[in-house]
């Protein structure tokens, strides 16, 4: 038996969230006294795959079928199921991404496995149990879940685990072919459109997020958020009212019914901190709140706060951030 980690590529490299999943998977393997294998699909550089050794992966199975360069759930599931069977995998690890969650649910049915998504802890395996902690109630609580059955499938929350680095270790890369038929691509996307992400920072994977609310008074003032984000190498986000008003696109909306983020640093500018917004950000490691209303509820959830006018405070922050030596 072994632990199998599904890794996703982006522009030929492995996604940061998948490096986290790989680190998690090798720790689980160590705990269970076995090895961790990764399965990669589509367009990823072979050197990037071999480098997964640094995260403790001993072997990578790679299906280079070019039809897999875009996400097709049925085909991906087939490849991963084949890898799982070949490796006799009893624990499968994914990142809790849109792709990971979609594929994990289908595999749970196909492999008759128990699935936990949004996982924030390594398993506790004493007494024949397999208990993991997962985020529930939109970030307001955690639940401990015992996964029953022979096969366990875990989708790990982004930014919840450190990427382990054992420099110089390389993984062995082996070709895998799941012999896919046209029928596996019946629901293939007609078109894929990528957004222009400023500086290439994906909101869901960002270590620093700068977020703006209605306190910024209008979309024409968003340069404050963008300039601070740029100076810090951060992704930009917004509150629900801001996306409802169409000041910013919906995919930037952070909160209970938007995107949940857990960066190292979340800077909220002109956001009062409604409970629904807090639910989307409260697992951030450090929260900074800038608001001119000293009674804004967000200050109660913050680590650092500035009571002041964003139009005066933020330019000072941009200046100080630009002066930092990187």
């Amino acid at each position: 038996m072994s632990v199998l980690v599904f890794v996703e590529g982006l522009n030929g490299e492995i996604k940061k969230s998948s490096l986290e999943a790989a680190s998690y998977g090798s720790q689980v393997a160590q705990q269970l006294g076995t090895t961790a294998t990764a399965v990669a699909i589509g367009e990823v550089h072979e050197e990037a795959l071999a480098r997964l050794g640094e995260q403790g992966i001993s072997k990578v199975l790679y299906d280079a079928d070019s039809r897999l360069n875009q996400f097709v759930a049925d085909a991906y599931v087939k490849v991963i199921a084949k890898a799982a069977q070949q490796e006799n995998a009893k624990v499968l690890v994914f990142s809790n991404s849109n792709i990971g969650a979609a594929v994990g649910a289908k595999l749970a049915v196909r492999l008759n496995g128990a699935l936990a998504t949004n996982v924030t802890s390594l398993p506790k395996t004493d007494g024949g149990q397999f208990v993991v902690t997962r985020g529930v109630f939109s970030g307001k609580a955690f639940a401990d879940v015992n996964l029953a059955g022979d096969v366990k499938i875990i989708a790990v929350k982004k930014n919840a685990f450190e990427i382990t680095q054992a420099a110089g270790n390389t993984a062995m890369v082996e070709k895998l072919s799941a012999e896919l038929s046209d029928a596996d691509f019946a629901a293939a996307p007609k078109e894929t459109v990528m957004q222009d992400t400023e500086g290439g920072v994906l909101l869901q994977e960002a270590e620093i997020v700068v977020s703006g609310g209605r306190g910024l008074k209008g979309p024409e003032n968003w340069h404050l958020v963008e300039d601070l984000a740029k100076a810090l190498g951060a992704a930009t986000a917004c509150s629900k009212p801001v996306s409802d008003l169409d000041w910013r696109p919906h995919h930037e909306h952070v909160g209970q019914t938007g995107i949940t983020v857990s960066p190292n640093l979340y800077i909220a500018i002109g956001i009062s901190g409604a409970i629904q917004h807090l639910a989307g950000v409260n697992s951030s490691k450090v929260i900074v709140v800038i608001n001119k209303d000293p009674e804004a509820p967000f200050f109660k959830a913050a680590d650092y706060g500035i009571v002041g006018d964003a139009f005066e405070v933020v330019p000072k922050l941009i200046e100080a951030a630009r002066a930092l030596d990187k």
Binding site: V145, A148, A302
Partner: peptide
């Protein structure tokens, strides 16, 4: 059959308090 059994719950740790900075 169910596969996942919820055995317990917890809440995130409370923040240690906010440090205010002069604007």
């Amino acid at each position: 059959e169910a596969k996942a059994e919820y055995v317990g719950y917890s809440k995130p740790e409370k923040k240690g308090g906010v440090k205010m900075i002069d604007p």
